[in-house]
Amino acid sequence: MKATFQVPSITCNHCVDKIEKFVGEIEGVSFIDVSVEKKSVVVEFDAPATQDLIKEALLDAGQEVV
């Protein structure tokens, strides 16, 4: 499964690193693409990962998800 999250609070590479760390810890996540320019995060994943778990990880990383 693939999901795109709009994350307007992404401003720098530190944000990218933190997002990759938090989302990458979720079992089932196979790909993460964070774009500072587009302020988006694209995640490819399989169970047990879910969109809700990914959104929670983004929030835990200090990001706003819309």
Results as ranks from 00 to 15, higher is better:
1 M>K: 10
2 K>G: 05
2 K>I: 12
2 K>S: 12
2 K>C: 11
3 A>M: 09
3 A>H: 09
4 T>M: 10
4 T>K: 09
5 F>V: 03
5 F>Y: 08
6 Q>W: 15
6 Q>Y: 15
7 V>Y: 04
7 V>C: 06
7 V>S: 00
7 V>I: 08
8 P>R: 08
8 P>M: 09
8 P>D: 06
8 P>N: 08
8 P>G: 08
9 S>R: 04
9 S>Y: 11
9 S>A: 05
10 I>S: 03
10 I>W: 09
10 I>Y: 04
11 T>G: 07
12 C>L: 08
12 C>P: 07
12 C>A: 11
12 C>Q: 08
13 N>M: 14
14 H>T: 15
14 H>N: 14
15 C>I: 10
15 C>T: 08
15 C>A: 11
15 C>G: 07
16 V>D: 03
17 D>K: 13
17 D>M: 12
19 I>G: 02
19 I>P: 02
19 I>S: 01
19 I>F: 03
19 I>A: 00
20 E>N: 14
21 K>Q: 08
21 K>S: 08
21 K>P: 01
21 K>Y: 10
21 K>L: 07
22 F>Q: 06
22 F>L: 10
22 F>I: 10
23 V>P: 00
23 V>N: 02
23 V>A: 02
23 V>D: 01
24 G>S: 11
25 E>T: 09
26 I>G: 01
26 I>T: 01
27 E>F: 10
27 E>Q: 12
27 E>M: 10
29 V>N: 03
30 S>T: 14
31 F>E: 05
31 F>R: 13
32 I>Y: 02
32 I>L: 06
33 D>V: 10
34 V>A: 07
34 V>P: 02
35 S>I: 06
35 S>W: 06
35 S>L: 06
35 S>V: 05
35 S>K: 05
37 E>V: 08
37 E>I: 11
38 K>S: 10
39 K>G: 09
41 V>Q: 01
41 V>G: 01
42 V>H: 10
43 V>H: 00
43 V>P: 00
43 V>G: 00
43 V>W: 01
43 V>Q: 03
43 V>S: 00
44 E>A: 08
44 E>F: 15
45 F>N: 02
45 F>L: 01
45 F>W: 13
45 F>P: 01
45 F>S: 01
46 D>A: 12
46 D>S: 14
46 D>M: 14
46 D>F: 14
46 D>G: 11
46 D>C: 11
49 A>W: 04
50 T>R: 04
51 Q>T: 12
52 D>K: 13
52 D>C: 12
54 I>L: 05
55 K>H: 10
55 K>R: 14
55 K>A: 07
56 E>M: 14
56 E>Q: 15
57 A>T: 04
58 L>H: 01
58 L>D: 01
58 L>Y: 00
58 L>C: 04
58 L>W: 02
59 L>V: 10
59 L>Q: 09
60 D>V: 09
61 A>T: 04
62 G>H: 05
62 G>S: 06
63 Q>R: 06
63 Q>T: 06
63 Q>F: 15
63 Q>Y: 15
63 Q>P: 03
64 E>L: 12
65 V>G: 05
65 V>R: 05
